[in-house]
Design a protein around this nucleic acid. Sequence first.
DNA 1: CTTACAATAT
DNA 2: CATATTGTAA
Length: 548
Amino acid sequence: MTTCGLARDALNLLRERKGGYDIVISDVYMPDMDGFKLLELVGLEMDLPVIMMSVDGETSRVMKGVQHGACDYLLKPIRMKELRNIWQHVFRKKIHEVRDIEILEGNESFQMTRNGSDQYEDGHVLCGEDLTSINKRKHFESKHDEKDTGDSISTKKARVVWSVDLHQKFVKAVNQIGFDTTSLPSFDGAMTGSVCLAEVGPKKILDMMNVPWLTRENVASHLQKYRLYLSRLQKENDFKNPAGGIKQSDSPLRDSAGSFGSQNSINLQHNDVSNGSYIFSGSSLVVHNGDPRSHDSDRKRLVSTPVEEPKRTLTVNVPNPRIPRSSQMEFGQPLAPPQSEVDFGALDSTFPTKYPWCGIQLKKEHNPLHLNDEFSHLPLPGQKQLTQADYPQPAPAISSAPSSTPSHNEYRSNVNHARSTAIAVDSSPIQTKTDVANHQAVEPNSKSTPSLENQGFNMNSITEFESSRKNINLGMLPFTTLEEDLQVCWVPGDCYMNLGLQNIEVLEYFDPGLITDVPVNLNDGLRFDYEFYDPTEYSLIDQSLFIA
DNA sequence: CTTACAATAT
DNA sequence: CATATTGTAA
């Protein structure tokens, strides 16, 4: 990527190296030339997509840009999201040229540029930046205006997204390693598991995963998170059956792992490139009876959980001092074949069974399972991120595909909230009723057109989500005793990633009819990664492109 | 403003 | 390599 302070310079570069650049991003206001003039010249002399940007969002100006041939007009505090989408312009163009090729690498290729045969994709940015407007946009920008923008963007290391897909690989690797080393997974014995884990290191995992661009650090970081997650799960389990419960806990864990595997299979392959986005439909499928609202289920789960064991929650706070990491042990159980889709099935089965009870308290035993499930979810959360973002397209498909695969939702939303919830929860007792009311109000929409709404996404919903959960809980358990409340809180923590399990439970919970209310929440949850695709942008993109 | 994630430092 | 800290994004 090349940045220029003056339009003339940019023009000269473009003329010198025709073919050396793929896209031009220009500010409307530049010291030496009007952005529209540049746009015009570029349009006349070369066939490059030009994107205009400015702090000025006045329609007349935007229109002018478009009329002069700009393929996009970005308002200045430009966000990564928007930048992620500009590659589309290049892509579209290239497609015509039959130069597809690596496009695919997509994600990163776009900004980082890989020099490959193609020279590179450079965009050159001309701009006088007015960073001023920007919020955080940073110091870097302040320094050298123009360059900074471009540089900062390109420079920044792309964050790894740990899509479901990726996470699956990760889990698989962990399990395999554990498996091999221990060699005898046969028992549930936590010990074994723990041992295995101990042996598992980022390096090995990285090797196993076989994902080229991933670094050891990435894996290490994720592993850290994963372990935390595990420990958390363990804690919960411990509480549940501190002494005897062992069995249950173990098995469940395994299941969870397996579930992941299953999901993987389901996932799309596009992912590799970058999409992690959609992937896991599997879980969702399991969850709902047909409804696409995967999220809902999660939340529901929360609800259910509370029901399950209220008392403990209290204790929870002071949970077992037990070995913190012990949790891993369970985890270690990887023994169970990772791939097992079976687990999934199991889940499903559970679902029905639970269903019946739904009424109120399903409980306990399942919990452990749930936890596991949750685990699996972990991976999902990250999806949005940059890297993946680029590729996108599939997402839309999801929406379209609705009937068949309502499932694709993303877990991630759930994940994030979990903790917050916990906190919030405490307070919740009081609020509960009110929340519920609100929640319901919202719901209506979702119900009417679940799929649509999903697409529509609810970006904001986070808060709503949480509230919704609470509501649900409340709704479910009007009485919620203090204890219950506590549980609620507790659960959330666990939740981190849970989807499937929660979903299941939720369903049960809901089935009774609560569902009607609940559903709304679910929809919200669905929102997907949608964000990537702006509706507008989306339109821009030709689906055909992807298809190709 | 908070939470959660991934990166980076220790 | 594990854990703690930091920086960001939602």
